[in-house]
Design a binder for these strands. Structure first.
Lengths: 230, 230
DNA sequence: GCAAAAGTGTTGGCCGTACACCCATGA
DNA sequence: TCATGGGTGTACGGCCAACACTTTTGC
């Protein structure tokens, strides 16, 4: 082994997670209430330190498993945050990621952690510890641009969904309103959803078509050109 | 300090740099010929380990200063590479960055390093050590998308430049050909370059206008919609 | 005057926005 | 049959790709 190797101390390596959940037409983020200093009793993003043999993906899954009880998520690396004073305990570099989950598919652990973990709507995020407010801000921005060229809804919606439900997701993430008829055309042109043939029953009005994501899609990228009316 | 803190060994943290240079209408990348194992006598991206008190930007500047003799660059964080076996010497996580320089503004160090550092045109990159081929590939991709919404040319061209020179840069980075007249209109509409009033002299044909980048630009983002003819 | 490159203008087609109309359902 | 939301179609306008013409320079 190279003699230069591992002879000086390294900064610690951590991962912080922005966990987006979509539920009842509202986009939320999972926050952790800290029981220890620093930022005791304050809210932060869930996170953890990287062990020697772990990959980044494995750390993310471990954090989700132990703190929230789920794993195997859609995961995207966001950015590395390296300000020397970002953690008052010492030098920690954090490689932030974000994930998308459908809260209805999982029960957020109801045990000892129940009071420590909470969903916050993205427009009601409290002041966060460390530099996590900035991390959250960047994750929101990334998600907004990602949804325009990648079928993000896969992870956030149920197996089947109506066009209106899909539109509500886009309006929520992009924080704009979209013309119903133009949205339909653009999404269908993009080609990543398919008609299932069945319809959603039990509504007051006309039963809308149910769609599903096209999992066999070759080209997983497109260019949506979505804009607000007026 | 938290007792949990720093009690386990951390992976090493490194930075690898994709240094893009534009010279004589050709886009190149700076590669390093390794004198030591692993990959002795092979080509790799310049890189280095993060010291305890350094920021990522400082590491990048240190690498550039010691290996190439310049610093204070346009710098953008690319991605973190974490495959456990990516470095045969041990566990190293690399936070890759890319930079843009105008080779004419600097003299690449001519001293002891002269034989170790070399420009390679982007379409003639040899097999690289570690996972650097993948890092290079991602950097190229990022640059291609970045140039469509950010005035990248700042760093790669001279203080003043002609419209044709700017177009050649775009054609080179995007690897397409662009209609001369449509390119002019789009770039001018984007609003990030200004007429200097002077013209480039000494050419065989009509002397073209010289432009400069608008450094006082408030809105530093736009949306270029550049496409190949036919 | 000629060749070559640079500056300026024009047009036709396509796409995206805006908007209208009918359909299905529950009460 | 009425209210409400869902499915489908259309037309106008703006923008962009394609292309033509003039201007300037060296020889």
């Amino acid at each position: 082994m190279n003699p230069e190797f591992h002879t000086y101390k390294n900064p610690s390596l951590a991962v912080d997670l922005v966990v987006f959940g979509y539920h009842r037409q509202s986009l939320s983020v999972l926050l952790l209430n800290r029981k220890d200093a620093p930022f005791k009793d304050g809210w932060t993003l869930p996170g953890g330190f990287l062990q020697m043999e772990e990959t980044l993906q494995q750390v993310c899954n471990r954090i989700m498993r132990t703190k929230i009880g789920i794993e195997n998520l859609y995961l995207e690396q966001l950015y590395s945050f390296d300000a020397p004073q970002r953690d008052p305990r010492g030098r920690v570099i954090s490689i932030a990621h974000y994930t998308l989950i459908n809260p209805e598919r999982f029960e957020i652990i109801a045990g000892k952690m129940a009071n420590d973990v909470q969903w916050f709507p993205v427009n009601q995020i409290p002041e966060l510890g460390f530099d996590h407010t900035e991390i959250f801000r960047q994750a929101s921005q990334r998600l907004k641009s990602k949804i325009l060229y990648h079928p993000v809804g896969f992870e956030l919606l149920d197996e089947t969904f109506t066009m209106t439900e899909l539109q509500a997701l886009y309006e929520c993430i992009l924080d704009i309103s979209i013309d119903r008829r133009n949205f339909r055309r653009k999404i269908l042109d993009a080609g990543f959803i398919l008609l299932t043939g069945s319809k959603r029953e039990g509504l007051k009005n006309r039963h809308p078509d149910l769609y599903k994501f096209n999992k066999d899609l070759k080209q997983n990228s497109f260019q949506l050109n979505i804009s607000s009316p007026q």
